[in-house]
């Protein structure tokens, strides 16, 4: 088995990857460089977050006025928006993926309001959504011109 030492000593085995390909595993996609919701330049708390019912992942239409206010703001300016999802449920893993589903649901609703998908990114913090936390999706706005400067996936500490 041919093994190579990757950065920092983690070993990956070429033969294992070859075997994985033989088993029908496909190439994994990687996220494009995106700004971080927690970066200092990102404006958070400018709009009220979208509140979800307990355990619910679908976009709550009762929150539409909040969403339209965000859509109007984005149409006027050229900012990018980061949707940060959270969930207060009985499992950290469930909270992470339910928060992601909620962020995705709000993303779809914003696209339906006319915001281009390439101006929206999503993240989930699960049980640990910064700010008010809980069953919400919060908005973070990346100023124009700074979008490429904020954080890259895979960056080392």
């Amino acid at each position: 088995m041919l093994c190579v030492v990757l950065s920092g000593g983690v070993v990956a085995c070429a033969s294992a990857d070859k075997k994985a390909a033989g088993e029908g595993l496909r190439e994994a996609p990687r996220r494009a460089n995106l700004p971080s919701y927690l970066a200092a330049q990102v404006k958070r708390g400018k709009f009220e977050g979208i509140v979800f019912g307990e355990g619910v992942g679908e976009y709550p239409k009762s929150e539409r006025s909040k969403l339209r206010a965000v859509a109007t703001y984005l149409k006027v300016g050229g900012e990018r928006v980061i949707l940060a999802g959270g969930a207060k449920v009985g499992s950290a893993e469930y909270a992470r993926q339910l928060g992601q589903q909620r962020a995705g649901a709000v993303q779809q609703a914003l696209v339906a309001e006319g915001i281009p998908p390439n101006r929206i990114s999503t993240v989930s913090f699960g049980l640990d959504l910064p700010g008010k936390g809980g069953d919400r999706v919060e908005f973070g706005f990346v100023p124009t011109g700074e979008q490429a400067l904020l954080g890259r996936p895979g960056d080392k500490p």
Binding site: V10, R96, V123, L150, G154
Partner: peptide
């Protein structure tokens, strides 16, 4: 990275790298 990625860490020497960083 600002997003939820899977990191693989070798506990013998502390080396680590991001192995899964798909969108979402």
């Amino acid at each position: 990275s600002g997003y939820g990625d899977v990191v693989l860490k070798d506990l013998r020497d502390g080396g680590e790298r991001v192995v899964l960083s798909a969108p979402g």
